[in-house]
Design a protein around this nucleic acid. Structure first.
Lengths: 202, 202, 202, 202
DNA sequence: CATGAATGAGTTTTCATTCAT
DNA sequence: CATGAATGAAAACTCATTCAT
């Protein structure tokens, strides 16, 4: 940890805090403290709070895009079903590695439009990329359109991790996303994907 | 609007602002200004920010519980499929009347645990109530358990309204969701419900 | 208690609170709450905070002047020693009845000059009256002058009740001035008075 | 004055103001203004009002403890009388240097129990230390016990400086006590000490 | 008399940001 | 790079006081 350079140490501290309590709930002092750095250094390395936040977002997005690319690259000729399974798996794997990601996105989405541009650019792109998988077997418009299905699937995947602390009795920051819970959710998503793909065929 | 008494005028101003920019993004001054009231008066009527926020949440929850109760009361002997359709419709109708509701919930869920108790009491209750609908046709454990399905369905329903502004322009100038978008989403949910109910029968 | 009229109920509430935490430590709301009255009523009956405080002070001073007058009236031909004993006893008795008095005076004395006028008029008068007892056997000036002795005696008497919570381990609002403690302090003061009177004769 | 660093400049401003109008009578704004510093800077250097006040108290107490230690160290084999004279002199000297000290203590004592812990630790220790001087010639209990005498002597010493402004004009424009008044009070205390020490021998 | 509502100025405290060294 | 000090704006909340009813 302490072998990282200061700039990324700050970035990681910010990532954790923003993910835990949202943009408005974090102060630059909090971030400096968590990174074990001087407050002024945070500004030296990252200009201002909004910029720091954008870098955190972009870091996530870049990592996620890579994960998605990798998931889609292999066996490019697979069918829709297999592709969707791999995308779903990649998503779950990503959350396993970055448990604060879904909370951060949801919080950014619901905290006023301040960072919509970054979200629109990256998240929108990601959604549209994966949407492409469905275009072959989906109608262009209406309730079975690809965008509806993608929102349903990503919602189903991410919401699990934001609703969890309320549904279960435990708000245990680290334990809330256990290996077994993730595995079961992965299977559930596969099942839903299969239902939808089969449903589209009729 | 101006015919309401001050206390509720403040409550509604708070509701709108909290729903738009989240708990931490709103200041008591903002609320007072929007309610066209003196700042101290906000405290006179609602003690403190957290209490005001709780009242906003409880207002929503009470309304939602009523809507759900009504949806479930009629034709109690209906099958699971019809019940789920009615619950989904009630949810969509509720959002039509209270467009800021899903954003507010998601924001509360992802802004640090400060108001989890209220969420747990009401939202958790709501989830468990509707979960009951599925118990007859669901296994108790595993990836097809009722709780997985409920999280998927509520996620599919609510996430649409938080992702929408990023995916494309489904919101009009006032942040309201268009009638047609709501109607289409309602049909999509019906379709997904049907897929799942049929899928469980196999 | 509830048979008193509102105005005096407020006065007594104010007396207790001012005595416990000082002028600046009390809010009009505190007083209204303690008197179980509406806040506006406090202003209706007592104009403003400073005026209310002055009435509390004057109430104490009137009571104390009466006690002193009574103490000095009986056996007016007694010697200095007997008179001082009676004054000391009256002081102790007064504190027994009004345990918040010494704290209130000390606090007023040390909270900025805002109410010095009332203090100067009444307390100064009281000191000078009792000073008169000593004039016969005291030099007019120097370290044995009557004013030095009076300040020493009143200091010895009142300081006991303000230092007590620090010296002893107990800050028990009601029990801090127990019957026995008062009795012992009374004897101590008699002894000191005797020492001084005898000392002046040499 | 302006050559001191900001932190101590604030401390001294606070000392003066707290001593003049008491804890509740001073605002952080007042302190910042008097120290010619930015309001936020007061918090940067001293965390919060209570902490700042504690530092002021501790500063006084440390200085006083030093003064007392010095007074007691020299000629340790002296008799009780000489020791008490030296303690009394040290006390008077200390007030000469720190004229706001007695007012501050009395105010803290009578402003609600918020800072009793600091008082108990230091002032209580001081009282008990000096109490030790008297134990040899005092009974353990009753009206001539050491603690009664110490409270009388400290009361006699300190009360003079809080009562003075009411009794007559012993304070100059800046609220300082005149040299001559201090000197006369010193002699008075010596006289009282002698009376008590002699009185204990009988 | 009594009350609930209203208000402007003030309180303590925090924040993002800057700057001299 | 790194730091301690500094700052202006704004946050949440309280207060003495007033007023219509």
């Amino acid at each position: 940890m302490s072998e990282l350079d200061t700039s990324t140490r700050i970035l990681e501290a910010a990532q954790e805090l923003f993910g835990d309590v949202g943009y408005d709930g974090v102060s630059m002092r909090d971030i400096a403290d968590r990174a074990d750095a001087n407050k002024a250094l945070v500004f030296y390395h990252h200009d201002n709070k909004a910029e720091l936040f954008r870098r955190v977002l972009n870091r996530f997005f870049e990592a996620q895009r890579q994960a998605m690319d990798e998931a889609l690259r292999q066996d490019a000729e697979d069918g829709v079903r297999a592709k969707l399974h791999r995308v779903g798996d990649a998503y779950i794997d990503f959350i396993h590695e970055h448990p604060r990601y879904p909370r951060l996105i949801q919080n950014t989405l619901t905290s006023g439009g301040e960072h919509f541009d970054v979200l629109r650019e990256h998240l929108g792109g990601l959604l549209r990329t994966t949407e492409g998988i469905l275009t072959d077997i989906c109608p262009e418009e209406g309730p079975k359109a690809a965008r509806h299905i993608m929102v349903t699937l990503t919602g189903a995947a991410s919401n699990y991790f934001t609703y969890a602390p309320v549904v279960e009795g435990n708000w245990d920051k680290d334990g809330m996303i256990s290996e077994e819970a993730l595995e079961e959710r992965r299977e559930h998503l596969h099942w839903v994907v299969d239902l939808i793909v089969d449903g589209l065929k009729d």
